[in-house]
């Protein structure tokens, strides 16, 4: 279960997963509070107890977003502790609500594929269908779906290649 390094990555991959499997995929947001870990100082314990009431750290909150499809077992996660991200993330949840509800994705450009199929086919499927010619083979949509899922699964490693900077 990869954690994505950026919220945008998570949102994009979740969107793809939802477009591929809108009926079973769910998005869970966990907001958890845990007591802050007491910092042990190398010095005596007396100092610690004396300083505690004054500088006691408030409990820490963590926000974990998870997109999960039980049918394929795909789970995409994102974790943050920053309050500044909350409203943007919830707006992202609203965006994810569109493919969930079966609504076409909001786009700035006019939708080219709307009149033909009338169902708001995602771009990946459309491309697959175009390659196979105009005849609608049953394989074409499934192929598009697979590609999307591979993308969704393959993106997991992306966040881990982060460089660690040496501390001085």
């Amino acid at each position: 279960m990869p954690y994505y390094a950026s919220a945008d990555d998570w949102l994009r991959q979740s969107q793809l997963l939802l477009e591929a499997r809108p009926a079973t995929t769910r998005v869970t947001t966990k907001y958890s509070i845990r007591p802050a870990k007491p910092r042990r100082k190398a010095g005596g314990g007396e100092e610690e107890t004396a300083a505690d009431p004054a500088t006691a750290k408030p409990p820490r909150g963590v926000l974990v977003l998870k997109t999960f499809d039980p049918k394929t077992g795909t789970a995409l996660k994102y974790k943050t502790t920053k309050a500044a991200e909350v409203s943007r993330l919830v707006q992202g949840l609203g965006k994810l609500g569109r493919p969930m509800a079966g609504l076409p994705e909001l786009r700035d450009e006019p939708m080219l594929d709307a009149p033909e199929s009338g169902t708001g086919t995602p771009a990946g499927e459309k491309a697959a269908a175009a390659v196979g010619g105009d005849e609608k083979t049953p394989g074409a949509p499934a192929q598009g779906q697979q590609q999307q899922q591979q993308q969704a699964a393959g993106g997991g490693g992306g966040g881990k290649g982060k460089k660690k900077k040496g501390k001085r």
Binding site: T28, I33, A36
Partner: peptide, 13 residues
């Protein structure tokens, strides 16, 4: 005001 606990929010079709 509590120092532990969690809230789960879920959305699905």
């Amino acid at each position: 005001g509590k120092d532990h606990g969690a809230i789960y929010l879920t959305q699905k079709r």
